[in-house]
Each structure stands twice: as structure tokens, then as C-alpha cells.
Design a protein around this nucleic acid. Sequence first.
DNA 1: TGCGAGCGGGG
DNA 2: GTGTACGCTCGCA
Length: 882
Amino acid sequence: MVEFQLLDVDYVNVNGKPIIRIFGKTEDGESVCAFYENFVPYFYAEDGADRVLEGEPQVIEMERVTKKMVMGYNVTKQLYKIKIKDPSKTPELRERLSASGIKTYEADILFKYRFLTDLDMQCLGWIRTNVDNGAATNTVSVDKKIELKDMEKLDKEKDAPLKIMAFDIECIAMEAGNVPDSKTDPIILISVVFSEPYKGQKSMVLGTRTGRGVNPYTSEKEMLEGFVNIINEYDPDIITGYNVNNFDIPYVVERMRQNKVKPVFGRCNEKQVMARKIGNRYKVSISGRIIVDSFELVKKDFSLKRYGLDYVSQNLLNEKKVDVKHSEIERLWKGSTEEFEKLVNYSRVDSVLAMNLVQKLNLIDKYVALSKISGTLLQDTLNMGETTRIENFLLREFNRRGYVYSGRPNQSEVSRREKNRRKELKGGFVLEPEKGLHSSVLVLDFKSMYPSIIRSFNICPTTLLTNESQEPPEDVITTVAGTKFVSKNVKEGIIPHVLEKLMKKRQETKRALKKEKDPAKKKSLHARQWALKILANAFYGHMGYVRAKIYNLDIANTITSSGRDIIHKTKTEIEKKYGYKVVYGDTDSVMVKVDNETDMQKIRQIGTEISKHITEKLPGYLELEFEKFFKQFLPLTKKRYVAWKFEPDGDGWQEGIEMKGIETVRRDWCDLVSETLSEIIEIILKKGDVKGALEYFKSVIKNLMRNKIPTEKLVITKTITKAPGKYEGIQPHIEAAKKITARNPNEAPGIGDRIGYVIIKGTDMLSKRAEDPTFVAERGIEIDPKYYIENQLLPPMERIFSVLSISKSELLGNGKQMGLMEAINNYNETNHIKVLPRTETNGFICTKCSKFYPRIPLVGTCECGGELAFSSPKGMVKQVTL
DNA sequence: TGCGAGCGGGG
DNA sequence: GTGTACGCTCGCA
């Protein structure tokens, strides 16, 4: 008997017959490959297929079947179920049929998914088989080979232990300053890190130079062969590294090709590792193993200013890279023993960090949970988007109930949909926010609004009444959008049904999570409830996604218009019944100003009371919830606000600053901006002191004018993206790079390097005044305060103050809300810029050439010399006086 | 405001 | 492999 957990599936063609291979792992950590024969590929096609495929040798059998269609209530069709020999011939047959105007169904389901769906097997699910014989094949390299004859699916929560291997390569670019080219530039070092010791070692560095801690090889070819052997012997389930998908793996594969080394380090001895270029990215696959690119996962899961390995490991792991610049690698490689050792260590640490990111941040937990729920293979869950998961999930649910799933839209269908969607799909309801700083605001949210709407109105392609629907029944729900769905009594929609299952499972999981003490189980339960939420929330978006197989604009519109209707009614009811003002609302939430109530007990009570009342009045499963309390709430525009929030936390409250649509960290801002912005927001919200915030802003400007701000806070960072000569315009970071190069040709920055610079005083054009911060600090060169005030500080600060200057004019002295302008003029007499309060304006427009500016340009006039006027969505408003 | 181009990470 | 595969930021009108 063997029990194993399913990790990956593929198939091989043996004598014209496909054999499914299931790669898995036992609880003891043995790798398994189970072969499943006699699974026949098939698809469906409409009438006429018999004629077109007459005499086709691929066809084994054509069976007449009646299938339910996904789109429209009670639509059935007579189809042919066409069984064929070779799954890879399907596209060809599909195209032939389609050329004759015959529609096909499920002819775009990958064979491995056809298998998983029909046998109802889950990725990471457990399988038990009584056969324990080694299958007679040496095409795979695993601990156990099994012929899968009789099997049983097990309901087992436990996960098999997965072996991880991280690696990183170093190479030297022939052309200095360029990224190495795998066609010409050899690999010099490969570092490898193991999650379980391999030959007693936690890590290894392979190299073509001898030295301490290096496994030496006489040539690159030999080293690559050594690398292949290590992988195959260690037999990892997961291969990771930083940017392995788009750099290391394609690079290694190409070097192997150059050196005539077979890139075979998957669990199949016959399949080479694939690294195919698609667009400007690579798609890589290693059969039987899972590639986890820690760079791509970090980028998806964490919001950071930068994603370089140095920055990422510093910020997420609090671990440091060995400090080696790319330009130094060649020198270290050719240098002294010590220098070489530094390089070896540098390489090793990079692999360690890639491994630590995966392990310490639990990067794959979420994807494991998503795979288990959606039935998508882990590798696909990692690489692909939500669409794949939803479609894999729904294929099972629809097939199980006698439906044949719709096909993927072709390019022309996609563009047709895109055109209509832009015109016709209306989004959620966003209330124009009441201007000003509000105190005591309740935030009430609809719990999973769109899923609840879908369930409440039984919204599903299979319940939608279309003109193809047979015998429209009496019991019909007419939605606010005018669409009609049969009620649940007549027939429960599949999507509402699965949503109910998912939402209930989530509640159960959350309950279990509360009781669970074991940290490992807690982690997996947490990931599970998260994945259930993500999947449930994705259905609405999916049906409104133009590439979805079950795209339906009417359904998407029904969901959003129901949402708008509900929010609208909620607002009206709250204002009518309680006399409170709804100051803002967005899609599924309303913000209610509760006079100036500050008693937290009372707040909670009012919030609960309103939610309860509204919930009772609403149809179906819709539920309004008291989410949190904003002690101070400052809306800037739709979708953008800052607030001092208090979230209920047991009997107490969790306090914090919430910012929506406002970034305090942006890569093109220097630290001074982020710091000042955060500070000002904090003063306004927590102290309610707009004047104080203004004073603070003035003091920052004062310090800037007196050259008292540390240079490092003024550094702006940009990446060199192409050769210096290829830049058309003059750009500050390029000018700074030129200066660095001129002073020290050894340190010349190249393509891909990030350049930090500051803007110094002078008469040259701005870009020419960009300077190396170290140089500026050493020489005590004066920075240009005007630049920092106008280009860096002012735009974000003005966004905050402009909404306040109107509503809080009493604080600044009546009619003298130009405080910000004064602040600047006090310290800079030559300044021409006036900050005007933003009322109905969305920017500025030239009176002469009509060029639009979101903000007043520095020079105060348009490029063409024309004068600027306020622009509003309704047109030009009034003249700007400068 | 609304859209298209272009780049990220890696050495 | 029953393949065709981003997603955000920035500059420009």
C-alpha cells in the first residue's frame, strides 16, 4: 500500500496512447510517480461533427449525448461526445470543426485537468493505492514508481514534507554595464541551499575556480553536469531562487545548450527543462517539480518601494546581502583569495536569502490553500491568475451537474467584449464625499456584498432567462437592472450554490482557527480561510472579465446595479430614520457622521443598531456590519481619504491611521516628503490641529532653506534603463551618473543600476544640477530648496491642505485660507507660485492652446506662453491670477 | 482625466 | 503541450 499527496500531473504518449503520470510525495518524504492508463481524451461538438470527422483516424468513438448549456435557464443541446486517441491532436480537430462552422465544447481543457476533473482529484489531495509494485519504466527518477490501478481518495489534512532547493548563479557580462548574455557569457559560480541537508551540507557553491568552500570544476560544462547531478540526487519538490523564472533558469538552460549538457533535472528523464521566451518574459517548467520564484511572490504579496533582493531581505527578513556591486564581480572573481571568497560568500548568501524568503515568510501557504480549494495544480496556481483557478473550480462544479462548459473566447470576441464593456458596464456606487475634516464617523460595510447579491437574487448564467430558455416559469426574480432569473425554488443557480458552500466553509474554518492552538495548523487554517474569501470574492469580477468563458455583461451589470441600489437605499434609510448624515460611501460601505458622539460605548451601540435595522430591511443574504469608527475623517476626493480609525478588537479598540488612495511612500519621492506627509496627516487627524500642521510644514521649509535637512533625506532614486547615449531628453539621474563616471571611471554605473541624486543650487537647467549625494555631503554643497519645495513637497501637501483651506477657514482666520501660500512667500520672496484652493477644479488648462495640467507647472504659465485657467469637469472656470 | 508605452528583477 | 501567459507606473494629450 502506498499513500501519497498529489503535487503535479502530466502525461506521456506511449505507442500512440496517453498515460497520465501523477507526481507526489508520501508522508515519509518519498517521491512517487504513479502511472494511470486507459484515460481517454474527449471533447464535445455540435451537429455536423459526424460529417466533418468522417473517417478521421484519431476518432475512437462518437457518442450522442444531451448536455445542459451554461448560458441561459434550461437550455439543453444534443451533442457528440468525441473520444480520440491523442490529446495533443485536439486543437487541430477543434480548428477543423470550427472552420466548418461547428461549435466545440471543452476542447480547450488541458488533458491533465480533464483527468483531474473527471476523477475528481485535487491538487495536494491524498491518494491511497493497494498496488505497491514498481512500474517497469526508467523514464522517471523518483523513489517509488507505481502503476495506479485501484485507488482511493483520502480525506487527510496533513501535508507531506516538501524538500526545497534554492539556487543562484553568478556570471560576468562581456560588455561592461550590461546584463550578462546567456549566449556568450559563461556561468562562474552556482550556489545551492537545501532545506534538508544534502550530503551533510546545508549549502554548496560550485565554481570554476578553486577556493575555500567551493566545489571546484575544471570547466563550465563540468560544473553544469555537477549541478544537474546534485538536483537529481537531492530530488527537491520545490526549486526556488530570486527571479529564477526570468533569469537563472533560462540562463542555466541556455548555458547547458551551449555546452551540450542535457538540461534534464526534472523528475522525468526524458523531458528537458523548458525555458521558452514568450514576449519578453520566460515560461519555465520542470516536470514533477514546482518552481517558486521568491521575487515574483514577494512582488505579489508585499507592497514595497523596491523589489531588489537587498531591499526586500532587509525589510522583510531583516537580513543583509553581502555588499558586492555588479561592476565588482569580475574584479573579485579574478582577484586575491580573500576577494574570491567574498564573491563566493556573496553568492551563497543570495541563495540563503531566497530560501529564507520562502520559508520564513511562508510564501507558498496561500497558494497551497488556493490549489486545494480550486483544484488547480500548485505550479499553475503560482504562475497564473484568478481566472485559471475559477475556471478549474467551476468546470468541476458544472460537469458534475450535467453541464458542458463554455469555450474560451477568441481574440475577436475578446475585443468585441472589451468595446461593449467599456460602454456599458457601470461600476460600484461612489458617493461624492462631503468636503472637510469630519469627526465621529461610523464605517458600516456590507459583508461580502457581491457574493451576497449573487446568492440573494440567485444570479447565475444557468438561471438567467434568455430567449433560448425553454418554458419560462412563473417564479421569477426581476432585478433592478431589468434582468430576470428563476428563483431558487425553481432551480438554484450553480454559482449561488457554490458561493454558499464556500462562505459556509469559511465560517467553519474561522471557527476552527479560533480553537486551534498548534501554530502550524493555525497557519494553514488561516491560509485556508483567506483562500476561501479570495475565491468567493472573485466570481463577480470573473463574470465581468472579457476573457472568461462564462463572461456575461448583463450579469455583471445586474450585480453592480443591485449594489448601487442597495447602497442608495441604505443611505436614504439611515438619513431618514436616524437623522445622521452619510458623508461618504464607496461600493459596499457607508460612512455615517454621528453628530459629535465620542463615547465609545455609545458608538458601538449606534453602529450595531443601525446595522441591525438595515440588515432586517434588506433582501436575502445581505448583511450590513459595523466595521470601524473614524474619530477623524478627512476625505480628499472620491476613493481617497485619510482617517484616524478605531477598530473593534474584542471589548477594546485598535487604533491607527488609515490612508486610502494616498501613498506616503513613492519611489520618486525623497524620504523628506514621506516623513513630512505622514507627520502632517498625523497632526491634522490626531490633534485636529490644521494650524499646527501648517506650522510644521513651515518649519520643514525653513530647515530646507537653511540647508539643515540631512542630505540622505533628499535623495531621489531612479534606475538607468538604457545606455546613456540612448536617452533622448536630459534626465537628472543620467546626468548624475555621468558626473560619477567622470570622477571615478571604475565606479561607472551601468544599465540597471539605481542612481540616487540630489538637486543642488545653480543656474543650470534642473537635470544638470543633479549630483551624487555622497559628493554633495563631502563638499558641503548647497542643495536647491526651491526644487524640493515646489517639486517634491508641495504637490502632495497641497492635496491635503486644499481640502482643508475651505472647510477649516475659521481655523486659519476667516477668508485668509491662503496660509500655505503665505508660508512659502515668507521664506521665498521670488516665488511666483500661489497655491489655490481646489473647489470644483480638477486641474488647470491653458487659455491659449488648451493643454491640460493636473497641477500648475513650475514656470506658472503654459509651455506655449499662454495663461492658465482653472479647469473643471464642466469646463473652464475662471482665470488664475499669478 | 484617460490611454498607451515601457519597464521591472536578475549579473 | 486540448499551450499564446502580467501589472503597474509614468508620460503625454
